[in-house]
């Protein structure tokens, strides 16, 4: 029964794993001779390609490139931290508000609406950004009569952190709140009743009952999020700015950077070095976070 899934994992997840060594090699395409044991061009070339140590990483830190590399790392990490914190707070807040709503039918309708953006692709969101914020956009047709200067999001860096943050909140808060809502629904009502009798208000009930029940879920999700801190929502960062070069400094993340190098004529080792940082550092961070959690609260550790 596990066979089809196991084969898929083997092909799409495990097979690329040894490929991380590309970061330490200069990849050269070599045609395997007819008598070679391995006939696949990529595997054969990968084995035959010379080891170059940290040369590929050195490319990323060349005086001409170091600024870009650091900028993209900064963007990736800061956007991720921002989304983690804001996403967590808003999802929990939304879950609590929906749970507390007296009218259960309305609560369901609301939740369905908040969940809807999760199903809309980033490409469509890119259209929305265009229709709102381009030189011909709706925002301009609203602010022009007020005598304000027109805006052009594809040329102005300052807008992008807000665009990404709002887009991220819009798309994921409803989805994120589901798991918290489910956890809150599962909490024993008698705890709240007892607290209410003891004179605890809603806020005290939240801090002393709801929050402690949510902590295990929060910790679990945050450990996984830490592991993705060098990754990013590729579709969002790639499509929303629509390739606008003027705002690249605030929109490009490591994922997009790696993809760009991969599709350029640069040696394969350069993007591989950046990708190596992403997978290895992410993995190490997960291990560290998990170890810390295990030290303090063993029952909440991921593994």
């Amino acid at each position: 029964m596990v066979l089809p899934g196991a084969i898929w994992l083997l092909l799409f997840s495990y097979l690329p794993m040894p490929g991380v060594v590309l970061a330490f090699k200069t990849y050269r395409l070599v045609r395997p001779p007819a008598d070679a044991f391995i006939q696949n061009k990529f595997i054969y070339s990968l084995i035959k390609s010379p080891w170059v140590g940290l040369d590929n990483f050195r490319y990323l830190t060349l005086p001409t490139n170091i600024d870009a590399t650091l900028t993209y790392i900064r963007n990736t990490v800061l956007y991720n931290l921002l989304f983690m914190v804001v996403g967590l707070v808003l999802s929990v807040a939304l879950a609590v508000m929906i749970f507390e709503l007296t009218n259960r039918f309305l609560a369901k309708v609301y939740h369905s609406i908040f969940f809807l953006p999760f199903f809309i692709s980033w490409i469509v969101v890119a259209y929305v950004v265009y229709a709102l914020g381009s030189s011909q956009g709706i925002v301009n047709s609203i602010i022009a009569p007020m005598g304000l200067a027109p805006i052009e999001v594809y040329k102005e860096k300052a807008f992008w952190p807000f665009i990404f943050l709002i887009a991220n909140i819009w798309k994921y808060t409803g989805n994120g709140s589901i798991i918290y809502l489910a956890t809150i629904t599962g909490i024993d009502r008698e705890l709240y009743e007892a607290a209410a009798i003891d004179g605890a208000g809603k806020w005290k009930q939240f801090v002393h009952i709801t929050l402690p029940h949510l902590v295990p879920v929060i910790v679990l999700l945050q450990i996984l999020a830490v592991g993705r801190i060098f990754g990013s929502d590729f579709d969002m960062f790639y499509t929303l700015p629509n390739g606008a070069a003027l705002v690249r400094d605030v929109t490009q993340t490591l994922d997009v950077f790696v993809y760009g190098m991969l599709r350029s004529s640069l040696p394969l080792g350069y993007p591989a070095a950046a990708a190596f940082l992403q997978s290895i550092v992410g993995f190490i961070l997960i291990l560290i976070t998990n170890a810390i959690v295990r030290k303090t609260k063993p029952e909440m550790a991921l593994f």
């Binding site: 899934g5 490929g19 061009k41 993007p271 997978s279």
Partner: peptide, 30 residues
């Protein structure tokens, strides 16, 4: 083999070969 296959799937959520390697594998091997 419950533990093994759970780990076999779970591990891929923690670690991956990265985009470059994935690109080469899907295009050149698969």
């Amino acid at each position: 083999f419950k533990t093994f296959f759970t780990f076999f799937a779970f591990f891929t959520m923690l670690f991956g070969g990265g985009l470059v390697s994935y690109y080469m594998v899907t295009r050149q091997i698969l």
